[in-house]
Computed example of a mutant assay.
Amino acid sequence: MTPRTAPLVSLLLSSLLLAGCAGPAGSPTAAPGPGKGSPTASAAATPQATAGGHHHAAASAPRKTPDGPSEAAKMVCGDQPMDRLTAILHLQQDPHTVNSWADSTFTCTYHLTDGALNIAVQEAPDQAQALTYFNAGQALAKNATPIQGLANLGFPAYETADGTAVFQKDSFILTVDASDLPATIGPDAVTRNALAYQLSTTILACWVEHH
């Protein structure tokens, strides 16, 4: 991120922070095994797994964290993403969620009427390795397109045609995977990509606020 773009990125993030950011949810609970809706559509999940039609070659897994996910990772299952999701889709009640911690990845699955929305945070040992995993995932993801300009908020980011947004910040790789949902969802006919992007920026704002 260049000095010229930094103030613009800060302005974008500041506008997102005006809504505040709630604390993370509680401890992770057991979740069903990987399936079509599992959060493995990009480098933000373990490279050996697959989901939503994305296939990844084997790669070195990040260092495991025996003590569980960080508080920042658990924010993806907290009040702020939930509030944003219910507002975007005009939901009458919060959807049921299930979260899990495995292979250095914290996963929160939101069970919507039209399918599962998966948000995952892979925690790498450091920023350099996180970027390595991110680049590998982008290279292997099907129909991946870089998110560029102000839209990426100054972070490495890409999206896939089927509704997945991936951002790398510090030692985290965030994936919002809406590929299990219809092409458009909710009374406003929000596209999967738009939903994934808006939830991603909400979570990034939470991380910046609590950094």
Rank of each mutant, 00 (worst) to 15 (best):
Q127W: 03
G33C: 01
N99S: 13
D126R: 06
F134D: 06
R84W: 00
F172I: 00
Q129R: 09
D126N: 14
G26L: 12
K36A: 07
C77F: 00
S60Y: 08
V76F: 02
N193F: 00
L153D: 11
T145Y: 04
Y110N: 02
Q93T: 08
Q168N: 10
V9L: 06
A59N: 07
W101D: 15
P47V: 09
L12Q: 12
D126A: 11
A183Y: 12
S27V: 07
E123A: 05
Y133S: 08
Y197Q: 14
A102I: 03
N99R: 06
A59K: 10
D162S: 04
S10Q: 14
L85Q: 08
V166M: 00
P125Y: 02
H96T: 08
L140R: 12
P47A: 10
A178F: 05
L150V: 08
Y197E: 11
A120L: 02
D180C: 03
G78V: 05
K169P: 04
T175Q: 15
P32M: 10
T184G: 04
A196Y: 05
A144E: 14
A196H: 07
A128E: 11
Y197C: 01
A194M: 06
L13A: 05
G37D: 12
Q148G: 09
V176W: 01
P39D: 14
A205S: 12
N118K: 12
G154P: 02
K36L: 08
A51R: 07
G52A: 13
L204T: 04
L112D: 01
H111L: 06
I88W: 04
A25I: 01
A72P: 00
G37V: 05
V9I: 08
V208M: 07
A178T: 08
V208N: 10
F106C: 14
A73P: 06
T202N: 04
Q92R: 14
Q129D: 09
T2N: 14
P62S: 15
N135D: 13
Q80E: 13
S100L: 03
G23D: 13
C108H: 07
T164L: 14
P39S: 12
T113H: 09
S171L: 12
D83L: 09
L13E: 07
E209G: 11
H90D: 11
H96M: 06
T46N: 13
A141G: 09
Q92G: 13
D177Y: 09
L150K: 08
F134R: 08
A189H: 15
D177A: 09
T105K: 05
H56C: 10
G20T: 05
D67W: 01
A194S: 11
S10K: 14
R4N: 13
D67V: 04
G23Q: 13
L112E: 01
D170I: 02
A205W: 00
A25Y: 00
S14H: 10
D94R: 12
D170L: 09
T160S: 04
T202Y: 01
V190C: 10
R192T: 13
P34M: 08
S10F: 06
V76E: 01
A19G: 11
G33K: 12
A31T: 11
G23Y: 09
L117C: 02
F134Y: 15
T132G: 00
L195R: 00
